[in-house]
Design a protein around this nucleic acid. Structure first.
Lengths: 154, 154
DNA sequence: AAGGGAACGAAATAATATTTCGTTTTCCCA
DNA sequence: TGGGAAAACGAAATATTATTTCGTTCCCTT
């Protein structure tokens, strides 16, 4: 039940499903060079092993009214576990929070948020500054994204 | 052909597919309260409109040997269009590059990279510094990710 | 109120997923 | 190195799902 149990066919399956999560099992089997039943068994096994965590449609943010994406470096006045966990729990409740990474290298957290417009973004930034223990906030507005690959290199 | 053409059922479909991209059309139709044929027609329409850009399996990076994720703030010595485009094209060729955002707010780019181990990460960071026009590099190593939501708020 | 376009849904058909089971391959271990 | 068990395979049968067809309904406009 580890990476060692993966052969080339498994890796091909993962690559194909990462590329197209709605490919049919028949087509997937054809591409990786085995018949449908064992292919499906492999997919189920990869899911059960937790290697495949789920399947998601990728939507177009701008077309849905979420035209602003921005990152925020956040510094807290304490690195105690309870303070960090409290911060994480609070920002995770905001629907605009897409990612919250605890980091090493200058500040404590790097967030990615989405906003419907500039006013919305301003409100989010102000709200963030008001959060308990937050002492520094540095915003990086995304102008354009030239590369956005889902998942892992395969 | 815009967001105005979306009704509540369309939004429900998008939310369901963002949550589970491999749900069957029958189940999707049941959840959004219509029968299968019109549901499928709506999905196809949303795909053609570009609102649904694709479907992807979400894999477990650590289990596949990609245990390190890190962000890098990159500053260049020029903001000329050709220089920016050249940088984007170069880092996009690296398989370890997952995201490359041009940003406003302190530096020029924010990258997200993945590495197999610390040595690999060091090599990537050194390579980045050697890239033409790069004058500043600040690395933020991801210690833990408490929130990672795909897509947009719905 | 009548006409027309768009969307719906039941039913039929096509395609795909999944199970079953006999065969082949792989991998230990004597 | 040979034998045997376990695992994986794939053809075929079955179950489920996707997709098309087509008659009906619902609006919306005039």
């Amino acid at each position: 039940m580890s990476i060692a149990d993966l052969d080339d066919i498994d890796r091909s399956i993962l690559a194909e499903l990462q590329q197209d999560g709605r490919i049919t099992n028949v087509e997937l089997a054809r591409r990786v060079g085995i018949s449908a039943p064992p292919c499906l068994r492999r997919v189920r096994r990869l899911e059960e092993m937790g290697l495949i965590q789920g399947y998601h449609a990728t939507l177009a943010p701008a077309m849905l009214g979420w035209s602003i994406s921005f990152f925020v470096l956040v510094g807290l006045d304490s690195q105690k576990g309870a303070v960090l966990a409290e911060f994480e729990a609070l920002v995770a409740e905001w629907p605009e929070t897409r990612e919250c990474h605890m980091i090493r290298g200058g500040e404590d957290f790097l967030l990615r948020l989405m906003a419907r417009d500039a006013e919305h973004q301003n409100r989010l930034t102000r709200d963030l500054i008001e959060v308990a223990h937050v002492v520094r906030v540095q915003t990086f507005q995304v102008i354009r994204t030239s590369c956005e690959r889902a998942g892992v290199p395969l």
